[in-house]
């Protein structure tokens, strides 16, 4: 068993996603001060050498690369096979990926294939003197935090919630890039992505946004979301919604935050006219700073918010956009 922490990279097109650099930072802080421990990255894909180049400049010891035309379209089983071959070969102690759509899709299959343990959605990681991983992860809609430990020899797999770690910075040294081999067969390609349709509108996904401005039932119609969009524009934020707004057809489900929507952890979450039902809180309670704008001083959202303004969102939101525009242009 090598004292290696392997980060599985995620990219979109030619771009490495920020969560990968966050995982690298998490891995580097695990390895810090532990002699012999190394952080490495791995990437698989049809033409992944460009990605490998980018990864190699982030303070890792090695980058593993598997280029394979059979990975041109995403298939869970095929990627799980490719990474399983690498993990069996180099025997890292820890494998990390983001708790993103991809990480959540791939890691359980990889864990089962390797007969390894997996902890998903981790918010803290710790390594003990025996090289065992201990994690903290929210459960029960973020109402409880669970400390979980791995109990076996063999690789320990974990996915990390986005936006918790500052991305690993670029370094002047470049790590070597080492290819690995894997045979992808037709049995791995029984479920394959045929087409990816870019959804119109919001380009920044909620789960990757640093700042989110959300609206609820009180938006009353889809058009009114424009005022949130304008505020978001000033902040470089993404726009979210409560389920009440989504169910009423004011916003698409891709914008829904909460139990049956997305779990988000931005540094700033601005809830406008959202009451703060537990199912909504489930998706945003982990945000670093929460601001609530609500006309009802008793609204439960004020119990989790850091700052609140009791008032009409139709007055507050435009004022806030104007004030921020002034403050941020200074």
């Amino acid at each position: 068993m090598a004292n290696e922490i392997l980060v599985l990279a995620e990219s979109r097109g030619k771009e490495v996603r920020r969560i990968t650099f966050e995982c690298m930072a998490a891995a580097q802080s695990l390895a810090a001060g532990k002699p012999g421990w190394e952080v490495c990255a791995a990437v698989a894909g049809p033409a992944a050498s460009g990605i490998a180049e980018v990864l190699s400049a982030r303070g890792v010891s090695r980058v593993w690369l598997h280029e394979n035309a059979r990975l041109a379209s995403y298939s869970t089983a095929a990627f799980a096979r490719a990474y399983a071959e690498l993990v069996r070969d180099i025997r890292p102690r820890i494998v990390l990926a983001g708790a993103t759509f991809l990480g959540r899709d791939l890691m359980p299959r990889l864990a089962a294939r390797l007969n390894a343990g997996l902890c998903t959605d981790c918010i803290e990681l710790r390594l003990d003197e025996n090289g065992r991983l201990h994690v903290r992860r929210p459960m029960f809609l973020d109402k409880i935090l669970a400390d979980v430990e791995f109990t076996r020899e063999g690789p320990q797999l974990a996915t990390l919630r986005p936006n918790l770690f500052a991305p690993a910075p670029e370094s002047a040294v470049r790590a070597s890039i080492i290819p690995w081999k894997a045979e992808i067969g037709p049995e791995d390609l029984r479920a394959v992505v045929r087409e990816v349709v870019q959804t119109a509108g919001q380009s920044l996904d909620l789960t990757e946004a640093d700042i989110i401005v959300s609206g609820g039932r009180s938006m009353k119609c889809a058009e009114n979301f424009r005022i949130l969009q304008e505020l978001a524009g000033v902040l470089g934020a993404a726009v979210g919604a409560s389920r009440a707004a989504v169910d009423a057809g004011y916003a698409p489900h891709s914008m829904q935050v909460g139990l049956t929507g997305k779990t988000v952890t931005p540094k700033l979450y601005i809830a406008c006219g959202i009451s703060g039902a537990v199912q909504h809180l489930a998706g945003m309670r982990g945000s670093r700073c929460i601001v609530a704008v609500n006309s009802d001083a008793q609204a439960p959202i004020f119990r989790v918010a850091d700052y609140g303004i009791v008032g009409d969102l139709y007055q507050v939101v435009p004022l806030l956009a104007a004030e921020l525009e002034k403050a941020l242009s200074k």
Binding site: D142, L145, D147, V148, I290, A297, R303, I309
Partner: peptide, 22 residues
């Protein structure tokens, strides 16, 4: 048969009451 196990549950750190700006 489980490669992971829960060792302890804890309540999330309380968020302090919102600072209401009035």
């Amino acid at each position: 048969g489980s490669p992971t196990r829960v060792t302890r549950l804890s309540p999330p750190p309380p968020r302090s009451q919102a600072k209401i700006i009035a």
